[in-house]
Design a protein around this nucleic acid. Structure first.
Lengths: 133, 133
DNA sequence: GTCCCTGCAAATCCTTTGCACTCCT
DNA sequence: AGGAGTGCAAAGGATTTGCAGGGAC
């Protein structure tokens, strides 16, 4: 494995992500980081996001359609995903601690984590479809 | 909405998927279907898979890395995803029926489904890394 | 000085789409 | 006949990668 060196860009990417409570895509984050680093490249954003995911400092959410999203909150929690607009929200709901445990026995204890996504239509989108109907 | 017409290709795609108990990607399925329809195109495979998903006859699994996978089993069940090779297996474990219910109250009953993925290293991959170590 | 990290651009991978033609009803 | 489905190839979107130069240690 290689030595990790400090980089202002990585620091900024992490800070930005921690500060937000939405679940931005790499591109959204890129836009926002360009305010501080106008020359940063999307490739650098991806590289650092993947690095931070590997270090366990952030989480990547692959919730179906659209690009992956990133989450600065690594504590166990659930997400609600809107089928229409793709937005992702945290559910303020206790995660089932038992679930990993319960699943372990079905695959010889090889599980290290799990992710649960709830799907539906968000408030905004259900308003919109009510209007157009 | 448009009228749905029969197509031999769609029939074959569905049959193929139902017959398998792995969770093939569109491309894997395409390879396998070409034995029966040598001229079928990948676009047709994608079009029909998406159609079948919309009809609720099959499920699409987006489990993180690599291309989406498809599942002919629409009953509620959990999946184990190998971080190294990306393979997906069913967990022969009862799904928590309560989970949707429990989550509903946190987003005004807008949830229509949920998906849970367990992550770890599969048997094959853990053997391999043991060998190379 | 060394090696990691960056910006840039090209490449890659997966998936969707436009079009002319074919097949189902 | 009419419209939905197909094959083909090109387009599209998201992400990764090779490379030459810049920055951390």
């Amino acid at each position: 494995m290689k030595a990790l060196k400090y980089s202002r860009q990585r620091e900024c990417i992490k800070d930005c992500l921690m500060r937000r409570h939405d679940h931005p895509t790499a591109d959204t984050l890129y836009m926002s980081i360009r305010e501080e680093f106008p020359n940063i490249s999307l490739g650098t954003v991806y590289r650092n996001l993947n690095l931070l995911v590997d270090l366990g400092e952030i989480r990547k959410l692959s919730c179906g359609s659209g690009p992956d999203r990133f989450d600065g909150d690594t504590s166990p929690h659930y997400h609600f995903v809107c089928r229409e607009c793709g937005e992702v929200e945290d559910l303020p709901m206790e995660a089932f601690q038992d679930l990993n445990q319960a699943a372990q026995r079905y695959c010889s204890g090889r599980i290290d984590s799990h992710a649960t996504y709830f799907y539906g239509t968000c408030e905004n989108c259900s308003k919109k479809s009510a209007q157009s109907a």
